[in-house]
Amino acid sequence: MILQSCEITLNATDILECFPLSLLDWGRTGVLSIALNDTVVLCSDSDGFYDSVALPTTLEDGPIHLL
């Protein structure tokens, strides 16, 4: 059976409307990331409901160190 209704709806009012962009990705750790204009929001449903945080935007130059 195919469930034809969505399980949950998240508010993403500030999402940009532009065809070439790529603003949504679900990581291997189970965290969903959404780019909303100047903010990145991370969502997790580990506690049975979707919760989210916004990323900080302090910037430093230089290469990254992979974890």
């Binding site: 603003l23 990705d25 679900w26 990331s33 780019a35 903010t39 990323l55 974890l67």
Partner: peptide, 15 residues
């Protein structure tokens, strides 16, 4: 100032 793309790699978000 706008974020144009995003991709996850392990615990790192890239945008």
């Amino acid at each position: 100032a706008r974020i144009l793309c995003i991709v996850f790699k392990l615990e790192i978000v890239l945008y």
